[in-house]
Design a protein around this nucleic acid. Structure first.
Lengths: 144, 144
DNA sequence: TTTGACTCCGTAGTTGACTACGGTAGTAAG
DNA sequence: CTTACTACCGTAGTCAACTACGGAGTCAAA
């Protein structure tokens, strides 16, 4: 479990995480990733923890969490407020489950649409579009 | 197959579609819905076609399409571009499935975290949070 | 006919998540 | 030591999708 010191500049970190430097700085301002100490008259250095955190953020983001929510998730990390952490975790879990349910409905709907689309040959109307028009019974959602 | 004229003001339309008036006007500016003729010195009236289109937009939005993409879908309406529509649908479907997969991984992780957290209440550290970092192998993530 | 709600329209503000700019200061290759 | 990159930092701009504002016109009930 030993690993090299692995200290990088913000540029190298950005490259490693496939994120823009400015974006990292933006996350720092938002408090999502820490700014490491800056040695007097020198430059900040980042390690693989910073990288892991950036990757976490990207993943969570892709999953549909906002940066604010991700901030909440990340607070689970310091472990100092286990109860709070658990509450947050539970909340997120509920949230995640809702998202899964919602996405599954969407999946079903899209799958049906695409299949109908492939099935129809030289019809005048595209079933995908007509179906969207006809409403396809979505969940309890308005938008987003 | 006959239906009443069903002409509404923009306010009534908004209410019927459960959308703000300003949002409708915004869609008009974006070219997603048409502005009906305005009788000299009077007010525009909207029919059930306008309503259908608004619902189409909302549904498509729920399916994960952006307004630009929706504009694209609407241009395919004549039905002669079914293949294109299907391609768009398939793309979204893939996207949705990736999200579901990832969310299920996070669901597992969160579920584990919460359970462990309840199990050992007054420990100094929640030993589990780190596993969010390790546990999320995610797919090919960039973002969004 | 008055009054109050609604329409019209252009423009401007908001939110979330970046992305760019510009000046100064550190760093690394030759 | 010079030169060419970065890094640092604050501030400002962008993009999508709204949302609000203000003033003038229109409609409908009392």
């Amino acid at each position: 479990m030993a690993n090299k010191p692995c200290s990088m500049t913000i540029g190298a970190l950005a490259k490693a995480a496939n994120i823009g430097v400015e974006t990292i700085r933006y996350y720092q301002r938002r408090g999502l990733v820490a700014e490491p100490e800056k040695p007097y008259g020198s430059i900040r250095r980042y390690d693989e923890h910073a990288l892991a955190r950036l990757q976490f953020i990207r993943t969570a983001q892709w999953l549909g969490f906002s940066l604010d929510e991700i901030g909440g998730l990340l607070k689970l990390q310091d472990g100092t407020h286990c109860d709070e952490a658990r509450a947050l975790g539970e909340q997120k879990l509920t949230n995640v489950r809702q998202k899964i349910t919602s996405l599954r409905r969407i999946e079903l709907a899209l799958d049906g649409l695409v299949k109908e689309c492939s099935a129809q040959k030289d019809d005048v109307k595209c079933p995908l579009i007509t179906s969207i028009y006809d409403g396809l019974e979505k969940g309890t959602s308005g938008r987003k």
